[in-house]
Design a protein around this nucleic acid. Structure first.
Lengths: 139, 139
DNA sequence: CAGAATCCCGTTGGATACTG
DNA sequence: CAGTATCCAACGGGATTCTG
């Protein structure tokens, strides 16, 4: 039986105007994205990055998604984009305070995932083992 | 200029075995999903729900995504699925302690989104209104 | 160097119909 | 009631090419 105190604590949260909720959900949906999270983490560690640096630090991201994700972050006020009018072009990205606040908020989830990784893996193994969609051979 | 103390605090986090990181990222990716978050929130408030209840409490979700998301949650050990052998069928879903822990971890993001909603909306408005495509010279 | 534009394919996810 | 199965449209996102 799940801990009733924790549950009560969660329910006591400042819930919540339904109209506001929709907006908050939208923000969550925009921010709870693979590349967004990785870029925020990278920018937390390297407080100032050029476009190419980010591409190198974020293995596997395509240039399209990098641009797209950075634009969204800039639009939401989570990163600043500074263009230096030189040639060749130099553009620097940096987390704002707002972005840094999000990074901190997401730490909780990150830490939870790390702390409970083994339990989750165990649960998955049990789940996979527990279902026999087909009769095992050897009858 | 972003707060340097907060930045240092974030960098001091227990980072991080690269192999583990991949797994953690995978967990994040699985869990940082629209329907997953909504269902966890609903199950935090209603500690026990039937399938149809969840469908009603989660407006807009299709039955396919509801089933799929619940299966994933069950697989990861975040919810329990209890089948009562009666007719018509009765199936109940309930958060586990693990799931409750995730709900708590995500609260930080939720609260951040609520607390900074206005700043984000303002940033978006500013972004839409006028971007200085180039650094403003002395014009 | 930092992107914009184009093409294209795989996955996601909704709608619908059927079943135990 | 609580699903499974099938079809299909939309979108995400990778690879490539072009530009200031």
């Amino acid at each position: 039986m799940p801990d009733p105190d924790l549950r009560r604590e969660l329910r006591a949260l400042p819930e919540t105007d339904p109209a506001i909720d929709r907006l908050v959900e939208q923000i969550i949906g925009r921010v709870a994205d693979k590349w967004t999270m990785l870029l925020i983490e990278i920018l937390t560690e390297h407080d100032c990055c050029r476009f190419g640096e980010l591409a190198r630090l974020c293995p596997g991201i395509s240039q399209k998604m990098l641009t797209q994700t950075l634009r969204a972050l800039e639009c939401d006020g989570l990163v600043t984009r500074t263009v230096y009018p030189v040639v060749p072009p130099r553009v620097e990205y940096r987390l704002t305070d707002l972005g840094l606040g999000l990074a901190k908020a997401f730490c909780g989830v990150w830490l939870w995932a790390e702390a409970n990784r083994e339990r989750i893996e165990a649960a998955r193994a049990a789940y996979a083992a527990g279902r026999d969609p087909v009769t095992p051979p050897g009858s």
